[in-house]
């Protein structure tokens, strides 16, 4: 008996309404435009304070440096929208890189074999994360905390912590050093991941289900959605993208090392949250994630160019992330 008056009787939005709405969108809103403004502000500040910042080469540099975070963050966006978290991505990357390098050195020195081994290993870790989370109802925070440790340990065990050299030139060209339509391939792969992510999340049936599962898992179940499968698929996607990032990294360094990118999962999660995803699920978008990751990359790059000491860089980066989230949260 508590139903009140019917709200939302249609009325033409007035100009002041529209202005208020725009302001709301800028500050928080469905798509926090604040994010884009923050990015532009960062660019301006760094351009004014460092003569080396504003150049095509440096931007390509930023692009290359953010590649790994950006690629994995696409998957993480799905996971976080589905109300889960994946802490294992950096370890998965290391393990997938080892798998790719070993497959090429031990099985067959073909880039296809390497790529399949790397992507497959990443997807497999994701599958295990997803199955443990959904079938045993263990919170994904704990599941992936465990697989963070296990995947890293396995990566170190297979060669007793030694790196594995890669000699396949085609592999280098495709994943690390070549260009595609004039774009360095690491950036091209990031774009591919982004586009696939946008299509999947915003235009595909799968994306609809991800949003529903994260927005209200019970209502999704009652609407006939296989919530366990959808959640697992998000983990598999993230794992496979960690595998792709592993291919890019190992092709760039001509070797796979088991101790790479430790702690990178935090950059990935920060990028996704900066990009406007809600940790409570049901909300977020890929373009936001891209900008979140670009902000983190630009910060890293700009602070180095300004000669800020690396301990100070960590402090500034952390403070800016917290401030940005405080601004953009709903």
């Amino acid at each position: 008996m508590t139903e009140l008056t019917a709200p939302n009787v249609a009325a033409a939005p007035t100009r002041s309404d529209r202005r208020r709405k725009l302001l709301q969108n800028l500050l928080r809103g469905e798509r926090p435009y604040m994010l884009y403004i923050a990015f532009v502000v960062l660019l301006v500040v760094f351009s004014l304070s460092s003569p080396w910042f504003l150049s095509v080469d440096n931007f390509l540099n930023i692009g290359r440096q953010t590649t790994l975070v950006s690629i994995i963050a696409v998957g993480m966006t799905f996971v976080i929208i589905a109300r889960q978290i994946d802490l294992s991505v950096a370890s998965t990357l290391a393990l997938s890189g080892m798998a790719a390098a070993l497959a090429m050195s031990q099985v067959s020195n073909s880039w296809i074999v390497g790529a399949a081994a790397g992507l497959g290993t990443g997807a497999l870790v994701g599958l295990l994360n997803g199955i443990l989370t959904t079938q045993l109802s263990i919170p994904s925070f704990l599941v992936t905390l465990g697989s963070l440790s296990m995947a890293r340990g396995l990566a170190m065990m297979v060669t007793n912590t030694k790196p594995v050299i890669i000699t396949n030139e085609t592999y280098f060209a495709i994943f690390g050093e070549g260009t595609f339509l004039g774009i360095p391939v690491p950036i091209a792969w990031t774009l591919v991941a982004m586009i696939v992510g946008i299509l999947l999340l915003h235009y595909n049936v799968f994306g609809r289900r991800i949003y529903a599962v994260g927005g209200n898992p019970t209502a999704a179940l009652y609407s006939g959605i296989n919530t366990k499968w959808v959640t697992t698929a998000a983990f598999v996607l993230t794992g496979a993208l960690a595998g792709l990032a592993a291919l890019v990294l190992s092709a760039r360094s001509h070797a796979a090392r088991p101790d790479v990118v430790q702690g990178m999962e935090l950059d990935v999660i920060a990028a996704v949250i900066l990009g406007g995803c809600s940790l409570f699920g049901g909300r977020g978008y890929i373009l936001g994630t891209l900008f979140g990751s670009l902000i983190i990359g630009t910060l890293n790059n700009g602070l180095v160019l300004l000669g800020v000491s690396s301990p100070m860089q960590l402090v500034i980066k952390g403070a800016i992330i917290v401030a940005a989230v405080a601004f953009t949260k709903r």
Partner: peptide, 9 residues
């Protein structure tokens, strides 16, 4: 609210 709808959608 719990079973029928995703309120924020």
């Amino acid at each position: 609210h719990v079973q029928g709808l995703v309120l924020d959608h």
